[in-house]
């Protein structure tokens, strides 16, 4: 079923950028979980594609580097490497956790973090964690090099700020000071290898029984993975008690209802999102029982 195409395997980012430059019929091949099945099934997305640029031979694209203040993950890094990376586990545990429940091990061994958000599919499981960590991404082309928050990059479902001759090369995470805690929750229909029905990441800080910082991001329930800024604003400065958390969870329901409208899944997902939000905030504030 696969149409004819040529596969190029550049060894450096610069080489890859040259190859994609001015070639609208070229696409990046990273983990292949989307591209190869798409080709095999004759998906219309790949009708015009004549060239695949395989980025798996570019060392920087799948390197994880740590400095005192940052961890930088090559956008072509497979999830398995992220899940096993001691720095990620220590400083960004929600990312490690969310990446560990994506697909099967075979998928995690190939599928990449960049590939997870580059399509901006609503059920990209790593996105909520990246959003609460306020991840930035680096986007390069043969003639440009820019950074932007992931939150800005994700425009709307299946649409990002990526231009045709650009490649996302890095995910940049800034370390946090002590005192932040967080939780990630994924709800799937089964325990092994499930597409998420909804995901939520909560991340924040409680000082003297006051919520001094909080970040909440959702996936698979909003049109794209997103931070719920309105809710965060309301919660910051509130006392860290059960009542505040309940109010916040209910508020989240209202916000999502407004953002997404009533979809077929709303009667299930909306109430459950409130429950899950409450429970994750509860665990964040009061700890696990």
């Amino acid at each position: 079923m696969i149409a004819q195409f040529e596969v190029l395997a550049p060894k450096t980012i610069q080489e890859a950028l040259q190859l994609i430059s001015g070639n609208p019929r070229a696409k990046i091949l990273a983990g292949g979980t989307d591209v190869i099945t798409g080709f095999h099934q004759g998906s219309s997305r790949f009708i015009d594609t004549t060239t695949l640029i395989d980025i798996n031979h570019i060392p920087e694209m799948h390197a994880i580097t740590e400095t005192d203040s940052h961890i930088v993950i090559g956008a072509g890094t497979p999830f398995t490497h992220i899940v096993e990376n001691p720095g990620v586990i220590k400083y960004f545990p929600l990312l490690a956790e969310s990446c560990s429940v994506i697909g099967s091990l075979q998928i995690r061994n190939r599928a990449t973090i960049g590939g997870n958000f580059i399509n901006n599919a609503p059920c990209a499981d790593s996105v909520p964690a990246l959003l609460v960590y306020e991840a930035k991404i680096r986007i390069q082309s043969a003639i440009s090099d820019r950074e932007m928050p992931l939150a800005d990059f994700l425009v709307k479902p299946y649409k990002t700020q990526l231009k045709p001759d650009e490649i996302v090369t890095e995910v940049i995470l800034t370390k946090f000071d002590d005192g932040y805690k967080g939780n990630f929750y994924k709800l799937g229909r089964r325990r092994g290898v499930a597409i998420s029905r909804l995901t939520i990441a909560v991340f924040g800080k409680v000082e003297n029984d006051i919520i001094t910082d909080i970040r909440i991001a959702s996936g698979a329930v909003t049109p794209i993975g997103m931070r719920i800024a309105e809710l965060e604003q309301k919660l910051i400065g509130k006392p860290a008690n059960d009542d505040s958390l309940k109010e916040a969870a209910i508020e989240l329901g209202k916000i999502i209802l407004e953002k997404t409208g009533i979809r077929w899944s709303a009667p299930y997902k909306l109430p459950v999102m409130q429950q899950v939000c409450y429970q994750q905030l509860h665990t964040l504030v009061f700890g696990k029982e």
Binding site: G32, N56, Q106, N109
Partner: peptide, 13 residues
């Protein structure tokens, strides 16, 4: 040394 789905890779890879 990693388990992969061979339906999700190209031979040239």
């Amino acid at each position: 040394k990693l388990a992969v789905n061979s339906c999700l890779m190209l031979a040239v890879q």
